[in-house]
Every structure is written in C-alpha cells, then in structure tokens.
Design a protein around this nucleic acid. Sequence first.
DNA 1: CGTGAATGTCCAATATATTGAACATATGAT
DNA 2: ATCATATGTTCAATATATTGGACATTCACG
Lengths: 260, 260
Amino acid sequence: MDAIADDAGGKRARGLDRAFEILDFLRQKRQALKPNEIAAQIGAPRSSVYELVNLLLRNGILEFTGGDGRVYLGRKLYFLGAAYENHFDFTRECEAALERLADETRETAQFCMLDGDKYTVVRMREGARPFRISTDVGQSVPIPWTASGRLLVAHMTNEEILAFIPPQDFQLPGGEWLDPKAFLAEVRQAEREGFFTFNSIVDSFTHCFAVPVMDEGHAAATLCLVTPRDDGLANRDRYLACLKDAAASLSQAPTRPKRG
Amino acid sequence: MDAIADDAGGKRARGLDRAFEILDFLRQKRQALKPNEIAAQIGAPRSSVYELVNLLLRNGILEFTGGDGRVYLGRKLYFLGAAYENHFDFTRECEAALERLADETRETAQFCMLDGDKYTVVRMREGARPFRISTDVGQSVPIPWTASGRLLVAHMTNEEILAFIPPQDFQLPGGEWLDPKAFLAEVRQAEREGFFTFNSIVDSFTHCFAVPVMDEGHAAATLCLVTPRDDGLANRDRYLACLKDAAASLSQAPTRPKRG
DNA sequence: CGTGAATGTCCAATATATTGAACATATGAT
DNA sequence: ATCATATGTTCAATATATTGGACATTCACG
C-alpha cells in the first residue's frame, strides 16, 4: 500500500480528485451524462457525485445540457483552456505547420502531446486521400501504442518510464502484450535518431512517422504523419524531411522557457 | 448572513471552491505566480494554497512554468476546454461571422459571452483603422459597463438580474454610479428591439453596437462592433444590418439544444 | 553581522466533507 | 396491480481536509 496505492483500497476519495475524475470522464465520453450515470460508470458513491456535480455547476465548470438533468463540461473550462492556449501560444504556428505538412504530403498530419500518462492528438489535418486515415482528436491512447509515444517519454530514465506508464497500457488492442524492454529500446533509438517510424501496431495497414517538437530540452509534443503502408515506405525520406522541417519551425531553444 | 454570505465571514472555505478561485485568479492575472503570491493576493491561508496547488499540479490542472516555483494553468485545462469547444461547436462559424463583419465594416468586431456574473470578450477581429479600438480577449468586465450586457441578461426577470449582478458592478470606472433602474429599463428596451447601441459609458470616444446570438430562446452570446463615435452614428443602420445578418447565421432554433 | 521580508514545510486541532443507507418518485414491463 | 430499475434527495457518522501557527531557509540590505 505505498507504491501503487492511488485510490485502490483507500477509504475516502478527495473531492478535488473526484471532481477532475468526473471532468475527465465526461471528456472521454464526449457527451452529456446524468449524475447517476457518472456515478455508476466511474464507480463512485452517488451522493458524492451529486454533491460534486452541484458544486461544479455552481462554478460554471459543468453545465446542464441535453435535457433530463444531463451535465457536460462548462463554459468556464473553455475560458481557462483559452487562457492556457494564449499563454503557451503554440496554436497559430501549429496550424500553419500542419497545413504545410498536409500540402506537401497529402497525408494525415497530427500534432500530439501527453495528457497525463496517455497520448492524445491535439490537432489534426486529414489527408487528401479518398480513404482517410484518422484518429479522433482528444482521445486518450496508451503511450506504447503510438510512434509519438517513443519520443514523448524519451527524456525520462528507463525506470521513470516504467513507473510513469500504467502496466496495462503495454497490452495492445488485439490482446497481445508488448515487451516493456523492447519498448524501452525503441525509446532510446528514437531519442538517438530524433524521430521514430513504424508500421502501426494498432492496425495492419498504416505506417506512422513521428518527430519531436522540442521545448526546454525535451519533446514537448510531436508532429506525426499517418500514411498507408506502401506510401509511407515509398516516400519515407521525403516525409521525414518535411516533418523535421516543420518541427524545427515549432521547436524552442533548448534551455529557456517561452517567457522568462 | 443569508443573501450575500458567499465567503464573507465564513469559517472554512471548501477546497473545490478555493481551487477554482485560484484558477480564475491566474486567468485574470494572465501570468505564472508563486503559491505564496497567490495566497497573499486572494487572501487565502498559505497552507491551504500550497496544499491545493500541489493537488492541482498532480492533476495537470496547474503546471510549473516561469521558474522559481511559479505555477500557471495547465495542459489539462486546455484539453477540457477543447472538449467543450468541440461539443458546442460555435468556433468555426463564429470566426467566419467575425471575418465577414470585419470585411463589411472595417470596425472592431467581437463575440462576447457571460463568464459567471461578468462579461467577457471570447473572440475578436480588430478593425482596419489606423487607431485600433480593442479590449483584451478573456478579461472579465462588469455587465453594466457594456452594450452586450443589456442583452445577455435580458432573459431574466428584473429581480433575478439585480440578484445576479454584483451591486458594486454598477459603479463605472470613473467612480460614478449607474442607476440600476435605468439599467433595467435599457435591458427591457434591448430585449424588445433585439439590439442595443450606445456611446460607451467606459470611455468618451467609442460607440458600441450589440446584437444577440440566440440559443434555446435567450441570448447565449452577442456580436458587437466597437467604433469611433462619428463613424458609428454615420453608419448606424448599415452596421446594425450587418450585425443582425451575422447573428442570424449563428443563432440556433429557439427550443432545441444543439444535440439532443 | 543582524534584521526583516519572502518563501516553503510541517503539524495538530477541529470544522466539515464524504459517504452509506434509507427514503421518495417515476417509468416500464409482466 | 406488482415488481424492478433508474433517478434524485436527505441525513447522520466519522474520516479527513482546512487552517493557524511554529519552524526553516534564503535573500537583500544596512
């Protein structure tokens, strides 16, 4: 009951943690839910969830929407998120880089970051192909499933990485397990080479390219291409060059934060 | 100690409320602060603020940034805000409407909403004039100071409005007090006419136009123009027509929410 | 060096938040 | 009508979160 305690056998949950659990759950679901449903699905006491939901409603963090007492993320969160975006102003340049990538490659281009201990697509430009390959923006995905994942944890030591990634995230959607040792080796390779590419391990027809967007000396984000396997292999060098160009234009100096 | 209690002479503050007070404070300041500074400036016990800040850091709601242990809004808030924006998808159309307004009028065009009991500019296109007239996006402003404010509270009864707007918000920046009765009369006028225009009461050289963006039967937001007084008066009818057109394109049906 | 301000940590006391369980109500199926 | 399920409300018990204050450290400055 020390290393992996978290919220397992514990007695009471702290309101704040539970509150953000509710917010994250609504984000995952991407739809308004009744407090009762939330309680059932996250396994929290109903009275607690009702209490917290009411508090969050009073603060504008949640809003009634969809009728029948259903709640979803509120406007206040939009304002807070906008303030974050404004402070770490990556959006404008990011959109430009994705635009350029999409023009140059006609493939699906993504800007990805860590969301806690998960990987998430922050922004995306879909490719110009008749069959589009795309993930949903804002969905949380286990880090080991993605090419970007290798780069986003490369600043940690092996021990830190294994402590950081939930063990069950090494299980692929098909059910097979990815050997953590193999994963760590790929992380170090990605760190050395400054990029990572592979045939996706979550499907059988895509090839993924990822390069880091550096900030303060580590990969704060990645730029990725998701391509059909044959195209990816055929254009590998050109695509990598495009990605590196784009990432360089976004990367910050290695030592200084954006604002002093 | 009942109507205006809130957090005045109370004993202990609830962690959740304090937490969002911290987040809102950082948003207002628009810069990273040390926990100690936050505690001093919002008048909260230091030990509480340190405790909460650590909790929020663990959740990714706050982040260390700017060095020296300073904290600011975190990435998680960006993700949550993006989910809100995605759900109530007003951004794309909104930008288009502002673009069109800016083209047609060459004046500063704004998209505004309520943030709790304050008015805030959510998005803005600055005018093409040599001397630009602009407010900061994301700043909270007392409702009675703005033309939009008349529309944004028009769905409430007079009593609700007076209970909703903090009494001190009727004091203008110059120090004079705006008569709540006069304000309520203007609210009703705005409601009847479907727009509100006036020479700004917070400066001496602008004229403001506001029209409602309707959703579920009330003004969910406003579109505004901020113009030099002479231009505003000279082009009044044309500007109003442009605004109404734009607002109509954004407005939703009166009864149904966007997604059932 | 001594002093005061700014910053962060620690801890015990107690005010209270979280929780389980009981209760209330509506709805739909049999 | 009867039962089961889903939903929301209420309340008292107690585990604990919030808080004041003591303490430690750093820094600037006379």
